[in-house]
Computed example of a mutant assay.
Amino acid sequence: MTFSAWISFALLTAIQTASPGPAVSLLISTGLRSGISGALALLPGILVGDLTLITVAFAMTTALLSVSGAIFDAIKIAGGSYLLFLGFKTLVDVRASFTKNEDPAKSSHTFHQGFFTTVLNPKGILYFATFLPQFISPEGSYNVQFTILGATFLGVGLITDTFYAVASSYGSRYLTPPVRGGLIVIAGTSLLLTGAFVLLTYAESLRVAFA
């Protein structure tokens, strides 16, 4: 892997991790609702979730295996359902944004939210299994290069996620409660729509398969 290839991967990773998605929506809504401590509590879960997906993708590609249809379908269903639950919960809790920030002590469960939101993303494993190998040179060690790319993704992702956590947390100080509540509604709706899209896409694929 050349240095230019690594730089290209890092830049593309920065764009990908900064783009709106379930984890970003969760970070923003938690930062607005619970403050900096609640948002930062999500980061270890998101990091461990990405590390889990990268490890699984590495095992798949090195063993020249692919996820079976049944396992991937289960990931789709579980991931879509969890995002629906998380989006619904975010919208239900939006009333807290019109008062004071949530007690940080009540946000200890956010590690699990960050982890499951990341690891249950039905596109996660296939993303790492197909994206990372594109930047690996056949002349070098596959294992070493995959490890470098995986570590780069984790590092860049941690930076962008931390930015969202800090920006949403401290930015909320300058927002009126109605505006803060509106942003949480947008984030919660994003989670709901993502979960619904995953489940509807799966249902459509079943309909086509059995048509």
Rank of each mutant, 00 (worst) to 15 (best):
A18E: 01
G69C: 00
R173S: 00
T110A: 12
V156M: 05
L84F: 09
G35R: 03
F9Q: 14
S137Y: 03
A203F: 10
F135Y: 11
R95K: 08
A165M: 02
Y164H: 05
I54D: 10
A196K: 00
F88W: 10
V208E: 08
L53F: 07
N101V: 03
G79C: 14
A187Q: 09
T162L: 03
A187C: 09
G69D: 12
R180V: 04
I148A: 07
V208H: 07
N121L: 11
R207D: 11
P44N: 06
Y174C: 03
L132A: 13
G114K: 09
S8D: 14
Y142R: 13
L192D: 04
L51T: 06
L51Y: 03
Y164F: 11
A18Y: 00
W6E: 03
S108E: 08
G21P: 13
K89A: 12
L84K: 06
I148D: 00
A74V: 05
G114P: 15
P104D: 01
Q145G: 10
S108L: 13
Y142T: 07
L42A: 10
T110S: 09
T194D: 13
I148R: 07
P22I: 10
L158G: 00
Y174V: 02
L84N: 01
S107H: 14
P22A: 15
G124A: 14
P133E: 13
M60F: 12
A57W: 06
V24Y: 01
F72Y: 07
A151P: 01
I71W: 10
F197P: 03
S107E: 13
G157E: 11
F111W: 13
G35I: 03
S37D: 05
T30Y: 06
S34W: 02
L132Q: 08
T160N: 02
F58W: 07
V156E: 05
L91S: 06
G155P: 00
S19F: 14
K100Q: 11
F146G: 01
V48N: 10
I36M: 12
T55D: 01
F131R: 14
